[in-house]
Structures are given as structure tokens and as C-alpha cells.
């Protein structure tokens, strides 16, 4: 058995309270216009975007640093195995790959590079 809710009112009194509520069909056109103007001014203000937190800049800088290190690492490990491959990822094997190997390659004999260059030039001549 539940006890009657002592914090409640009889339905008839609630109806009477609601009936006495003032009508809200107030003409609000003036305020509508003014609120719209305030909102337009507010949201159009410069630097609308929220400021990124300080850690965001630090994280971005760290990512850039890691990418640079990885790229340096990648260029540091160019070896004879990279001969006749698309070293720079351009989608084709060309003279740029030869130059990349010449610049960043380690322990690649000059004659191997010359042979790679010659084959690239020969391929170019055939096309």
C-alpha cells in the first residue's frame, strides 16, 4: 500500500492554477528582430572557431617532427635493393629515382647507379 503523496496537489487545484496562468500569446515581433540581430552580430564575430588547446599545437609539432624523422630514416636506408624501383613514389621509374639514390643511397657502387641511369634513359628513348 502506498501512502498519499504529501507533496502533491488535488487535480482540481492544479487545473485552477493552470487556468490562472497568464496568456503567452504576446506579440514578440520586436524582440524576435532584436534577438536575431544580436545573434547575427555574435556569431559573425571574428575568431568564431574555438581556440585549440595548447596541447593541440604541441601534438601537431610532435607529429610533424616524427614524420620528418621517418622520412630522414627512409632516405637513410636507400641501398642497392632500391635500384630499379620507384624510390620517390611518383608512380614511375625515372631519372628522379636515380638522383634520389645518388643523393641518399648508401654503399651503392657508382657503376650500378650508372647502369640504372642508362636503363632509365633507354626506357625514355623507347617511349
Amino acid at each position: 500500500m502506498t501512502e498519499p503523496d504529501t507533496n502533491d496537489l488535488p487535480p482540481e487545484l492544479i487545473r485552477a492554477l493552470k487556468a490562472r496562468e497568464l496568456p503567452t500569446d504576446v506579440i514578440t515581433a520586436r524582440v524576435d528582430r532584436e534577438v536575431a540581430a544580436l545573434a547575427a552580430e555574435h556569431f559573425a564575430a571574428p575568431s568564431r572557431r574555438r581556440q585549440r588547446p595548447a596541447w593541440f599545437a604541441a601534438a601537431a609539432a610532435a607529429i610533424v617532427a616524427v614524420v620528418i624523422v621517418l622520412q630522414l630514416d627512409q632516405s637513410a636506408v636507400l641501398t642497392r635493393d632500391d635500384l630499379y624501383t620507384d624510390v620517390d613514389g611518383s608512380g614511375q621509374i625515372d631519372i628522379a629515382d636515380v638522383l634520389a639514390l645518388a643523393r641518399d643511397g648508401q654503399d651503392i657502387p657508382a657503376e650500378d647507379l650508372d647502369a640504372f641511369a642508362a636503363s632509365v634513359v633507354a626506357l625514355g628513348d623507347r617511349s
Partner: peptide, 18 residues
């Protein structure tokens, strides 16, 4: 009506950029 305007003007200041 003035209170209505003041309420939403106050609400507006909670959003960026202010």
C-alpha cells in the same frame, strides 16, 4: 518581453567567440 530579450542575450554570451 524585456526579460525575454535579456534572457536570450545572456544565453548568447555563453557561446563562442565571447
Amino acid at each position: 518581453l524585456d526579460a525575454l530579450q535579456e534572457t536570450f542575450a545572456s544565453l548568447l554570451t555563453r557561446f563562442p567567440p565571447k
